[in-house]
Nucleic acid binder design. Sequence first.
DNA 1: TAGATAGTTCAAACATTTTTGAAGTATATC
DNA 2: GATATACTTCAAAAATGTTTGAACTATCTA
Lengths: 134, 134
Amino acid sequence: MFELSNGNIFDVNHPPVPMERLIAQLKALANPKRLQMIHLLMEGVHCNCELGDALEMAPNLISHHMSILRDLGLVEMERDAVDARWVYFSINEAALTRLNQDFSAFFAPERIKPRRPTCGPQGAVVPMSEIAVT
Amino acid sequence: MFELSNGNIFDVNHPPVPMERLIAQLKALANPKRLQMIHLLMEGVHCNCELGDALEMAPNLISHHMSILRDLGLVEMERDAVDARWVYFSINEAALTRLNQDFSAFFAPERIKPRRPTCGPQGAVVPMSEIAVT
DNA sequence: TAGATAGTTCAAACATTTTTGAAGTATATC
DNA sequence: GATATACTTCAAAAATGTTTGAACTATCTA
């Protein structure tokens, strides 16, 4: 166990964040359309049709991508109180904050440990750039 | 144009980070095996065979995933100076830092703007939880 | 109550990624 | 010089993800 400069506890063999949750989050984000949707929702609440207009996508596709982001908890859905056919999508700030925490806990540069090749001839290592190009 | 509480400049319609770069990074990270590889490299330098042993993967698969992370700039490769058949992989700290910057610039909770449904009957909005379940 | 509206669900088509297995490269050892 | 080692490259198979198009639900309006 180690204590990092940022105060996090770090255990060798165990990542600082549950892998499953991080993977689920990254997979949901690793899509251009969903990233654009998130960008739009950061700007303010949008209904299905607004997102579809902005991104030139059919309403069923919007629904599909929103359900992926909703499963993640990152997006929330509300119905219009006057006309319940309309739904409004928005970002869940708490989920977004946790996403940022998970990401930076795993990818924190402070976690990088000094070189330690435990395999091979253990010889001195020379950067690729110093090797002649054939 | 806006200035956010964190000092970043933010322009409506334009994300705070190039979308292509962010997508490329997220796609490369959204894979359980590559995430585990990154985790191992955070712990220290590893050669191809060490990664293969740890993750129970064939060497050609390690090569393949490493090339994806190398294309991203996130992983660097060196050859052993004594026996050049061995290669060592490590994390590029500068790239990791930029990754963190890109991520938090895009997903910063401060970017969330107040609700503004520009579509639909503009009626009062009621949370899903208050709607009777059928 | 009939028709329109806003959105969701489903299954199949399509596209992209990942894995597999074989062949190839470069270096080192016998 | 022949063989072994450490790794890479390639092409095809398998697995996943995305889009399409049609059918469906719920709500509102005339």
